[in-house]
Design a protein around this nucleic acid. Sequence first.
RNA 1: GUGCCCGUAGCUCAGCCGGAUAGAGCGUCAGCCUCCGAAGCUGAAGGUCGGGGGUUCGAAUCUCCCCGGGCAUACCA
Length: 584
Amino acid sequence: MLKQYIIDVTTNAIKNAAKEGKLNQLKADDAFSLNAEIPKNEEFGDIAVNVSSLAKFAKMAPPAIAQAVAAAINIDDCEISTVAGFINFKLGKSFLNTIVQEIMNQKNDYGSNDYGAGQKVILEYVSANPTGPFHIGHGRWAAMGSALANLLKFAGYNVYQEFYINDAGNQIKNLGRSLHIRVLQELGEKIDFPTDEIEKKSYYPGDYLIPVAKEFVKENSAFAKTLTNDLTTQQLDTLSSFAKAKMLELQKELLNKFHTHFDNFYSETDLHKSGKVEQCVNKLNELGMLYEKEGALWFKSSLFGDDQDRVLRKTDGSNTYLTADIAYHHDKIKRGFDKLINIWGADHHGYVARMRASIEALGDDPNKLEVLLGQLVNIVLNGEATRMGKRKNMVTLEDLIDEVGVDATRYWMIIRSIDTTLDFDIELAKSKTDENPVFYVQYAHARACSIFRNAKTERINVETKEKIAPLFEEDELDKAIMDADLNLLWSVDDEKSIASARKLILKLEEFKPLILSAAKNRAPYMICKYLQELSGCFHQFYTFSRVLTEDKKLAAARLALVKSVSTVIKTSLGLLAVEAPERM
RNA sequence: GUGCCCGUAGCUCAGCCGGAUAGAGCGUCAGCCUCCGAAGCUGAAGGUCGGGGGUUCGAAUCUCCCCGGGCAUACCA
């Protein structure tokens, strides 16, 4: 990476200058550290290193340090200047050409790195109850999670994506009871969901169970006719598992449609059946981590940083949700994963301490668990934010996708840092104009592709109406670009063209540190921001530089640059699992 | 009460491992199409970085105290 290269060059210069005694009290082995940055102001060059932090070692004023270090720097094809405590580097054309060449050679791999060093990561996200359609909040985790998975893979991690199905517990019984009512309705009975405030909470009154009931009656007509207002346990089980399977199927279909692909769906029910939950409780017990109080079984989570102990087995003998979750996470570690990354809604943040405690109590490193807490999603309609209720006024993820499209939905779900509540403006996301960043970026890609199409098709002269032969023949284009003399980019008599090309290429170089930093911070939103900047630089370059000129050599050089841009845009959008269209 | 997140331009947000004149998009205003997609570009106006103290040569950034907003604080899942 360029920044690192500049830091290395500067570090050497400092050491040499120190050995020659030009930096006063600073010694070559002093523990100084440098940072390279891209100046906001272009006057200050392409890359700047601030050496002010050396002042405390050298006991010299920053400007004097900068000058002494700059004098010792050994670098070709690069202008160096100093301003105050800064050393500014203005890169020569050989650096810029190399960047384009590198992208041309590495193609889809450009920007990838080995930061993750093959670590095995299990990334768990969405993990919704199979009791109904996804709501909009789930969409944020689905988009974020799948983009993060792609990003981490690109940064050298070995990523396994898992969806934990919360298919045990009361909510499944409630689902079965709700289907029961819908089935009776389907059979013509006059029955409705209870209106009592407390009783109401045990039902899912959404319309989505109506088609499920129709299907159920069709497939199990004999059974359905035996149903009365009172349910036997067995009947409830049958209804519950039918509804559960149906819901899961619908969820999987939608995830697929939303470009979100899991390696595994892990069922909580199976976890219980496997005996792993009991085993885990026994293990905790053997380790002396449990005690009984008031008829319940407690876990001493407060020994490991939780603010209080937690119940694992209730007085009625059943396990809490936490118990299964402890077993589940223990199982993840036993499956050999080095890192457990979970995406949870911010409303679960109280849960982090107890999960960490359980991992530590079972003798593992709690730092293996990394929980990304995501803030909630507001829907903005006509300029007004509305909170998404789970049951009332539910706007489902599917509704949203149908309304604004997969690409725009994904992009907008990823665009903000996970730490901030997301205002999803439906009108804005739908708009196909420049106010919508996803279209701005996709347009840049389509435009780049269109230049390539034009490069090899015949055009018509507007004045003479005569056909003009294609600039390049189909089979010569690739070679022409690969062999292009990139120096021609800088030999034109047009300052704006040169300046915009420089800016564009430096932005392309930024892709590498960007990926590294986005992966480190688990922050796919940084890719969106980068894409918008890159697209802006490209549109600017396009405005100032005609690519398809009659000078074929110059055209080839500019086409090489356009190719690099479309490669990086395509890679970036690919990480977000958003389409990079060739035409729009 | 306690814990976590947020408070930066009219709006939505970057920047926050301290560093040069605080950035982007939208919106507003003024311009640019006989030529590769104007779904684009150029320029202008717009800020006491919620408030106050502290650390530092230097704070939007670190720290403390306030003030606003959100989320949580279950033997629910």
